[in-house]
């Protein structure tokens, strides 16, 4: 169970972007978060993935409150979340070929030996062809790069997936393929999903439950 209670978070001290937000995601559940631009959806997603320390509020992971964030969070907790961001260009290190990009979490956690095998499985899951793996991010399209980013997020078999407007930059067929890959992964592992977006149709069809945020919570 992933529970966010009364989360207030932001980037400047006196101007929180998110105020007193609460949200729960049960294991295996898909929760959609909809709202206009600038209402703090992405910030909440970053808080949920332990990437941004909230100013106040608690995050309960299986009933245990989380007290440390980013590098200070224990590695098992951090890697329990797979995160996919809106802009694939910015979320891929421009120097790493796609194969290294996808295998990076495996190497960082000392599972480098199993990387080749896992890489083959992951690329099939997200629908990347092997010839793309030696290319660098600037040599592939946005859609191909986002597929690689999804593969990277799935590399450590996370229990929670956080998709922050994962499909906002993509065409319909790539969107369908990525959503199908996420759903396939969730069916086989029972992972929970927090999908942030502003495409009502997509989020409603994708998720079991949808949360609407109205205006900027200021």
């Amino acid at each position: 169970m992933l529970e966010l209670r009364d989360i207030t978070a932001g980037y400047a001290r006196n101007a929180p972007v998110v105020r007193n937000a609460s949200l729960t995601v049960a294991p295996g559940e898909a929760v959609g978060l909809l709202g206009p631009s600038g209402c703090g959806k992405s910030t909440l997603a970053r808080v949920a993935a332990l990437l941004h320390r909230p100013d106040s509020g608690t995050l309960l992971l299986d009933g245990e409150p989380v007290r440390r964030w980013r590098h200070r969070a224990p590695r098992e907790l951090r890697t329990a979340f797979g995160v996919v961001f809106q802009q694939p260009r910015l979320s891929a290190d421009p120097r790493l070929p796609l194969a290294d990009l996808i295998a990076e979490p495996l190497r960082a956690t000392g599972e480098g030996k199993a990387a080749a095998e896992r890489l083959a499985a992951l690329t099939t899951t997200v629908g990347l062809t092997p010839d793309l793996l030696s290319r660098r991010p600037h040599e592939v399209s946005d859609g191909q790069l986002q597929r690689a980013c999804l593969a990277r997020a799935l590399a450590l078999r996370p229990r929670w997936l956080v998709c922050d407007e994962m499909t906002a930059m993509l065409d319909a067929s790539t969107t369908a393929a990525l959503v199908a890959a996420v759903e396939h992964y969730r069916r086989s592992t029972g992972a929970g999903l927090l999908a942030v977006g502003h495409d009502h149709v997509l989020i409603h069809r994708w998720c079991d439950r949808t949360v609407h945020w109205k205006a900027p919570s200021s």
Binding site: A49, T79, G82, F85, A92, E104, A108, C149
Partner: peptide, 8 residues
């Protein structure tokens, strides 16, 4: 962020 989440 992605690297942090990937356990680096």
């Amino acid at each position: 962020d992605a690297a942090v989440s990937g356990g680096a």
